[in-house]
Structure formats: structure tokens, C-alpha cells
Amino acid sequence: NNDALSPAIRRLLAEHNLDASAIKGTGVGGRLTREDVEKHLAKA
């Protein structure tokens, strides 16, 4: 659900052409954090 993404996370996802649903969020309520996105990028 993109409504739960902060603007910074949306921008980071867009810059790397990532789909938020492909990344498991570890923030409050399962929200994506910058660390989640960076860890996903490091794996790729």
C-alpha cells in the first residue's frame, strides 16, 4: 500500500525502479524503512 510510504521512501523506490511489495518492511506496522530498501539493494 503506497499510502503508508514516506515521500523519501517513495523517491528511493522510484530512483531504483523497485516495487514496494517486493520488500519486507521492518518498521512500525510493517512499514518500509530506508534500511529495508538499502538492504534489498545490497542483495540485488
Rank of each mutant, 00 (worst) to 15 (best):
N1K: 11
N1W: 05
N1I: 13
N1C: 07
N1V: 13
N1Y: 03
N1E: 14
N2A: 11
N2K: 12
N2M: 12
N2R: 08
N2S: 13
N2W: 02
N2E: 15
N2H: 12
N2Q: 13
N2F: 04
N2P: 13
D3H: 11
D3I: 08
D3V: 07
D3Y: 02
D3N: 10
D3R: 10
A4P: 13
A4C: 07
A4T: 13
A4G: 13
A4F: 15
A4Q: 14
A4E: 14
A4R: 14
A4Y: 15
A4M: 14
A4V: 12
A4K: 11
A4S: 14
A4N: 14
A4L: 12
L5S: 04
L5F: 05
L5A: 06
L5Q: 07
L5V: 11
L5M: 11
L5D: 05
L5Y: 04
S6G: 07
S6I: 05
S6R: 04
S6M: 06
S6W: 08
S6P: 13
S6C: 05
S6V: 05
S6T: 14
S6H: 08
P7W: 05
P7T: 07
P7K: 09
P7C: 12
P7A: 13
P7S: 09
P7Q: 12
A8R: 13
A8W: 09
A8Y: 14
A8H: 11
A8K: 08
I9Q: 03
I9T: 05
I9F: 06
I9W: 07
I9D: 04
I9Y: 05
I9M: 11
I9H: 04
I9P: 00
I9N: 03
I9V: 10
I9K: 02
I9L: 14
R10M: 07
R10G: 05
R10H: 05
R10S: 06
R10F: 04
R10Q: 09
R11S: 08
R11Q: 14
R11I: 07
R11Y: 07
R11K: 12
R11E: 14
R11C: 05
R11V: 06
R11P: 00
R11W: 12
R11M: 07
R11N: 12
L12T: 05
L12Y: 06
L12F: 06
L12W: 06
L12A: 06
L12R: 06
L12D: 04
L12S: 05
L12E: 06
L12K: 06
L13T: 00
L13E: 00
L13K: 00
L13H: 00
L13I: 06
L13Q: 00
L13N: 00
L13Y: 02
L13W: 02
L13D: 00
L13R: 00
A14V: 07
A14K: 13
A14G: 07
A14E: 15
A14I: 08
A14C: 07
A14N: 09
A14M: 09
A14H: 08
A14T: 11
A14W: 14
A14F: 10
E15H: 14
E15S: 13
E15R: 15
E15L: 15
E15G: 07
E15Y: 15
E15V: 14
H16T: 02
H16I: 03
H16E: 03
H16V: 03
H16Y: 11
H16F: 07
H16N: 07
H16S: 04
H16A: 05
H16K: 03
N17T: 04
N17A: 07
N17V: 04
N17E: 07
N17H: 10
N17F: 07
N17D: 09
N17L: 06
N17K: 10
N17M: 08
N17C: 06
N17G: 15
L18V: 09
L18E: 03
L18P: 00
L18D: 01
L18W: 02
L18F: 04
L18S: 02
L18Q: 03
D19T: 10
D19L: 13
D19A: 08
D19F: 05
D19Q: 11
D19I: 10
D19C: 06
D19M: 10
D19P: 07
A20T: 06
A20F: 07
A20G: 07
A20L: 08
A20Q: 08
A20S: 08
S21E: 08
S21V: 07
S21I: 07
S21P: 03
S21G: 10
S21L: 08
S21H: 07
S21R: 11
S21C: 05
S21Y: 06
S21K: 10
S21T: 10
S21N: 11
S21M: 09
A22T: 13
A22G: 08
A22R: 10
A22Q: 15
A22M: 15
A22L: 14
A22S: 14
A22C: 05
A22W: 11
A22I: 10
I23S: 00
I23R: 00
I23M: 08
I23Y: 00
I23F: 03
I23N: 00
I23D: 00
I23G: 00
K24S: 09
K24P: 08
K24Q: 12
K24N: 09
K24I: 13
K24R: 13
K24G: 06
K24V: 14
K24L: 12
K24W: 06
K24A: 09
G25H: 06
G25V: 04
G25Y: 01
G25L: 03
G25W: 02
G25P: 08
G25T: 05
T26F: 02
T26H: 04
T26K: 03
T26Y: 02
T26P: 02
G27E: 02
G27V: 02
G27D: 03
G27K: 02
G27C: 01
G27Y: 01
G27M: 02
G27I: 02
G27T: 02
G27R: 02
G27N: 02
V28C: 00
V28F: 11
V28Q: 12
V28H: 10
V28K: 11
V28S: 09
V28N: 08
V28M: 12
V28T: 11
V28I: 13
V28A: 12
V28P: 15
G29I: 03
G29S: 08
G29A: 10
G29Q: 08
G29M: 10
G29Y: 04
G29F: 06
G29W: 04
G30Y: 01
G30V: 01
G30Q: 05
G30N: 06
G30F: 01
R31L: 11
R31I: 13
R31V: 14
R31F: 08
R31Y: 08
R31W: 08
R31A: 14
R31H: 07
R31E: 08
R31N: 07
L32M: 06
L32R: 02
L32T: 03
L32D: 00
L32H: 01
L32Y: 03
L32K: 01
T33R: 09
T33L: 08
T33P: 00
T33I: 05
T33K: 05
T33D: 01
T33H: 02
T33M: 06
T33S: 05
T33N: 03
R34T: 09
R34A: 09
R34H: 09
R34I: 15
R34M: 15
R34Y: 15
R34C: 05
R34V: 15
R34P: 07
R34F: 14
R34E: 12
R34S: 08
R34G: 05
R34Q: 12
E35W: 14
E35V: 09
E35H: 10
E35F: 13
E35Y: 13
E35Q: 13
E35R: 14
E35I: 09
E35D: 10
E35G: 10
D36N: 03
D36V: 01
D36M: 02
D36E: 02
D36R: 01
D36F: 01
D36K: 00
D36G: 00
V37L: 07
V37W: 02
V37Y: 02
V37T: 01
V37S: 00
V37R: 00
V37K: 00
V37D: 00
V37I: 15
E38W: 15
E38K: 09
E38S: 08
E38M: 15
E38N: 07
K39E: 11
K39G: 09
K39W: 12
K39P: 04
K39I: 10
K39D: 09
K39S: 11
K39T: 10
K39A: 12
K39R: 15
K39N: 13
H40C: 04
L41W: 04
L41Y: 04
L41C: 04
L41D: 02
L41T: 03
L41K: 01
L41F: 06
L41P: 00
L41S: 02
L41I: 15
L41R: 01
L41A: 05
L41M: 07
A42N: 11
A42M: 13
A42E: 13
A42L: 13
A42I: 11
A42H: 09
A42R: 13
A42T: 09
A42F: 10
A42D: 08
A42V: 10
K43E: 11
K43V: 10
K43Q: 14
K43R: 12
K43F: 13
K43I: 13
K43P: 06
K43N: 13
K43W: 12
K43T: 12
A44R: 12
A44P: 10
A44F: 15
A44C: 07
A44Y: 15
